[in-house]
Design a protein around this nucleic acid. Structure first.
Lengths: 126, 126
DNA sequence: CGCATAACTTACCATTTGGGGAGTACCTTA
DNA sequence: TAAGGTACTCCCCAAATGGTAAGTTATGCG
């Protein structure tokens, strides 16, 4: 188990480093949602479009392209007409989601509470 | 331990829900970096500005304002001249970072490999 | 014949994001 | 009296983000 401080000293968080790039891919607004959905199993394009509510075709396409290029998501195109394309996590993707899901769950459970603090804007809160 | 599928069924990931709002605050480009730095202990404004390389004053201010409003970061202003302001994680923030740091570390360790896959574009990788 | 279907891509345009730099407040020190 | 240090806020503008809608490809079906 490495600490954040140790990693920082290795230069792992410099302005244009690979860590920041991966962070941007994986923790982007739509990236997180797509990955969570895929953590549930293989999904087709159309299913992802429906399940990740609010995503546009453009963003779904570019998000998936990025995650596939990063080796986190696997794309399988079945040679049927009309085309069927399936997406699932690679082993690397499953490893990643093993770490991300606990975080997502923690957030989902407490989210109402957290934005509640904000919207009530209680000056003497806590 | 709740699963993503179960959470989804509760409506926890609908388009403008609190989960997505918190996700946006906490997993934003600068939010992650500020939180990681604070997970290392209390920091002053000027220290954060230096340690989170590349952040502008504007973004540091708005990121901190958001995290403070969400009850994740605590702000303490010391009545000295010139002013000293200290930021640290709240208990909620420490809880959050307990979940986030393993993920960050996993990413930092493998980031070179991941973007490497992208630039090499190896079709049979992993 | 021509429409439907699935998974995209492309072009255009509005909104959002975010950088730069000046402004502010306040007391201390030269 | 003037400069300086600290932690901001505000305004303007350029650049990136992302939505909408139309186009594409290939074939089965009414």
């Amino acid at each position: 188990m490495v600490s954040y401080a140790e990693l920082r000293e290795t230069g792992a968080f410099a302005p244009a480093c690979s860590t920041r790039v991966v962070l941007d891919h994986v923790m982007s607004r739509w990236g997180v949602l797509v990955l969570c959905t895929l953590s549930d199993g293989t999904h087709r394009w159309g299913e992802l479009r429906r399940e990740v509510e609010g995503i546009s075709e453009k963003m779904l396409a570019s998000t998936l392209r990025q995650l596939v290029a990063d080796g986190i998501v696997h794309r399988e195109s079945l040679p049927t007409v009309p085309p069927h394309v399936e997406y699932c996590l690679t082993e690397r993707g499953r490893d990643l989601m093993d770490r991300m899901l606990p975080l997502i769950e923690w957030i989902a459970v407490r989210a109402d509470d957290i934005v509640g603090v904000a919207s009530r804007a209680t000056p003497n809160a806590r």
